[in-house]
Design a protein around this nucleic acid. Sequence first.
RNA 1: GGUUGGAUAACAUAAUGGUAAUGUAUAAGAUUGCAAAUCUUAGAAUGACGGUUCAAUUCCGUCUCUAACCUCCA
Length: 455
Amino acid sequence: MEIRLYNSKTKKKEIFHPVDEENVTMYVCGPTVYGSHHIGNARPAVVFDLLAKLLRNEYKNVTYARNITDVDDKIINAAIEQNVEISEITKKSTNQYHSDMKILNVEDPNKEPYATQFISEMVLFIEDLITKDNAYVSEGHVLFDINSYKSYGDLSSRDPKDMIAGSRVKVQDYKKNPLDFVLWKPSNENEIGWNSPWGRGRPGWHLECSTMILEIFGETIDIHGGGEDLRFPHHENECAQSFCRNDGKQLANFWLHNGMVQMADSKMSKSLGNILLIKDLLNDMPGEVIRLSLMSSHYRQPLKWSDDLVNQSKKTLNTFYSFLDQYEDIDITNINVNEEILSSLSDDINTPKAISVLHSMFKDLKKDPDNIELRSSFIKSANFMGLLFSKPRNWLIKEDSNVDTKVIDELIIERNRARQSKDFSVADDIRDKLLDMGVVLEDKNDITTWKKKND
RNA sequence: GGUUGGAUAACAUAAUGGUAAUGUAUAAGAUUGCAAAUCUUAGAAUGACGGUUCAAUUCCGUCUCUAACCUCCA
């Protein structure tokens, strides 16, 4: 199936063709590990997880790499503030990220390179840039000289002159041009650092991605993804340094950028303090609710996070699971994902469309509930999108919650006894009592089932 | 100030040069001892003004509002 993707570089939707059909390559900017992660961090993970699945469905070998930035000033600052070793911060944060992703049903990427594992390669990368006159040493720093790269600004569609004009770019006196960016910066004694030809120091942020892409994949990859806010300066700088290092080879053929998660009309960001941590959200809702919420709008659009959004996702999944709860589990191993779902996702990862297809499959399924083929295909397709992995019964009663199933079962028996003797006021009292406990009853034919109230 | 997007019913979200789809919510009915769930049906939308066109929500222009980036960000 033809995959079409909006390429930020050309600002057009293009048909995706890998350089090598036998080995498709994708790199996505992962987290900087210095704390807990918010839903804004989850969005690219979910989006590119879907894309990876789609690519794997189409091509034999897909290598998807998502990095971990484990050296950065923010990490250093966090370590100082908490008075602990840097490694303690990065380990904890990385573990948190992994468990968050798992609960969101985000599959592991094939490779997960850590910046600190590529320091010597980064040093070589810088040396090469210096040799080629694309970088210069100044006061212990090594800086990339943007004037040595004519296309600077192309990826993010901006003119360096405009940016300097009315902008907030701080002019450091060790820079030739205000937009020159740091490849290597000196470290104080109490800061993490590595020896280099320019003294003890650490790499600049942008360098790791270029270096790791070169080491893992080679000069040019098929797809490079990340948040819209990384387009400039991060990706622009990656482009610049890789282009120069690799003698004019493009770093990536397709650039994909996801829109920001917004809280009440403005971007969720740590500096604004309006963040929602994934681990906190997971106290109130299952991972699939977060995942469905994140997929409810197209990945390039901003996504407004709200209670309404979450409630709707909850409701949708509850409806699906309630239906499935009435039937036995089925083996879906050899079932195909619905073609219309695939074609929706193949059209620039159109998740809202795919979700609406899922709804229409569900509608058909309800009309023909014993149709095993339809049911398998529905579940398989939902699974493909990272949904409906729970056992329906577990989802509905949420066994991890603190309701006592024994007490509930006894009350249900008591109520049904009352109903049989037409003692309806007693029956209704029991139902109200259960409702107060957060339990909703459903009388279907002669059987009474229950589920947790959707709150 | 510069750059790039966005505006579709109550809310959220797709699509399209020619019946604007989907979910939630709402209303009516069926079902139910009452509910819940389910089923049937209904109402409800292309920001404003121009232009191109037989035809524009879609293409072009102007405006309004709004977001992101230009400093760390996903």
